[in-house]
Each structure stands twice: as structure tokens, then as C-alpha cells.
């Protein structure tokens, strides 16, 4: 574990917590893409499938974190699609998730470290995570704005994988550890946030709201 991965995981936890708090406190999921949250839930379940396959003795933080990620993302989907369904902006959350899931699954079968079920599920999860934020970014471009709290969520969510890139540089340099698939997908994922990061840093930090040219 290094400082970059530690802050990356903390940033990821913060993102999940910010979104949950926003939905729970405002009792509304306006401006939140339910599809993105579904894709994240799929990512966690397919990536941490080993938790279900053999007994999980909660002896280390990694397993606890995996359970937190899975339960929090499933609970977030429950809030969006059931509890606060009336506030779900289905009309604007219109990016076809199939256009993300099918290519990720196909690519996972073509480009992977080893052609076995668990490894292909892990690879699928990595590819899907790289593009899972697209429905959320698409929704914001359709509505033309993002609530400040949602901007904070996106900043934390984007920062998590950006910090992981620093973690991979660190591990390459000090541990000569390289996980090419995770690195390439992580770089793509972070690039997708670039224009949002620019807007966040130039606007939200100054207290303005993000309003995209409609």
C-alpha cells in the first residue's frame, strides 16, 4: 500500500458517501444517472466475485472495503430506482448502457491476462469501469448543469482513478509491478474526466455552478 492508493481508495469512498448523502438528504436523485450507478454496481460485483465464491473471513480491510463498495452501490441503485424513483430523471439519463456493456464484455474476452472465468470477469469489470461514468456526463450535458454536490461527487470519483495512476507509477518504479490492462483502462477513465476537471477547478472552486453551454 502506498499513499497514492490510500488516498485513491479514500477518494472513492468519499465519492460513494457524497452521492449517498446527497440522495438521502435531499430525498432526490435529480441530476444523478441511475445507469452509471448500475454500471458501477456491476463493476464491483464482477470484480469482487471471489467474495461470494469462498467464505469471506473479514480479517482484513481489503475484504471489508469490497463489501462496503458492493453494498453501498447496490443501496444507491435501490434509492434511485425504488425509494426515490419519482425524482429519477429517466428522460435525460438516456445513454444506451448496452453500448458500454457489450463492447466491454467483448473486449474482455479478446484482451485479457488469462482466459478463465474469474479473470475475464475482472477484466470486464476494469473495462466497464473506464466508461461507466459516461451516462452521468451525458446526463449533465443534456440538462446543461450539475448541482454543486454532484460536482463534488464527480471530482472525488474522477480523482480516485487519477490517484491510482500515480500509484501505478510508484509501484512500477519501486516494486516493478505492472498491470497493463488496469493501467490503460485507468488512463482512459481519467481522460474522460478531463473537461469536467477543468470546469470544476475553474468554476466550482470559485463557488460558481457548472452550467454547460446548453
Amino acid at each position: 500500500m502506498n499513499i497514492f492508493r490510500l488516498f485513491g481508495d479514500l477518494s472513492h469512498l468519499a465519492a460513494i458517501a457524497i452521492l449517498l448523502l446527497k440522495i438521502w438528504k435531499t430525498r432526490s436523485c435529480a441530476g444523478v444517472s441511475g445507469k452509471t450507478q448500475l454500471l458501477f454496481a456491476v463493476c464491483f460485483i464482477t470484480r469482487y466475485i471471489d467474495l461470494f465464491l469462498h467464505f469471506v473471513s473479514l480479517y482484513n480491510t481489503e475484504k471489508v472495503m469490497k463489501l462496503i463498495y458492493i453494498s453501498a452501490s447496490v443501496f444507491t441503485c435501490y434509492l434511485i430506482f425504488f425509494k426515490f424513483k419519482a425524482t429519477y430523471d429517466g428522460n435525460h439519463d438516456s445513454m444506451r448502457a448496452e453500448f458500454l456493456i457489450v463492447p466491454a464484455a467483448g473486449l474482455a474476452c479478446l484482451i485479457n491476462t488469462k482466459f478463465d472465468a474469474i479473470e475475464i470477469l475482472w477484466t470486464f469489470s476494469i473495462y466497464l469501469e473506464a466508461v461507466a461514468i459516461l451516462p452521468q456526463l451525458f446526463l449533465i450535458s443534456k440538462t446543461g448543469e450539475a448541482e454543486t454536490i454532484t460536482s463534488h461527487y464527480l471530482f472525488a470519483q474522477g480523482s480516485y482513478r487519477a490517484l491510482y495512476i500515480l500509484n501505478w507509477i510508484y509501484r512500477y518504479h519501486y516494486e516493478s509491478h505492472v498491470d497493463t490492462i488496469a493501467i490503460v483502462a485507468g488512463v482512459v477513465q481519467t481522460i474522460l474526466y478531463c473537461d469536467f476537471f477543468y470546469l470544476y477547478i475553474t468554476k466550482v472552486v470559485k463557488g460558481q455552478k457548472i452550467v454547460l453551454p446548453a
Partner: peptide, 10 residues
Amino acid sequence: GGSLLHHDEL
């Protein structure tokens, strides 16, 4: 650590 295929990151 562990085998190559053991992904030790979240």
C-alpha cells in the same frame, strides 16, 4: 505480491 493473476488492488 502473490501470483501474477492475483490482483491485489481494489
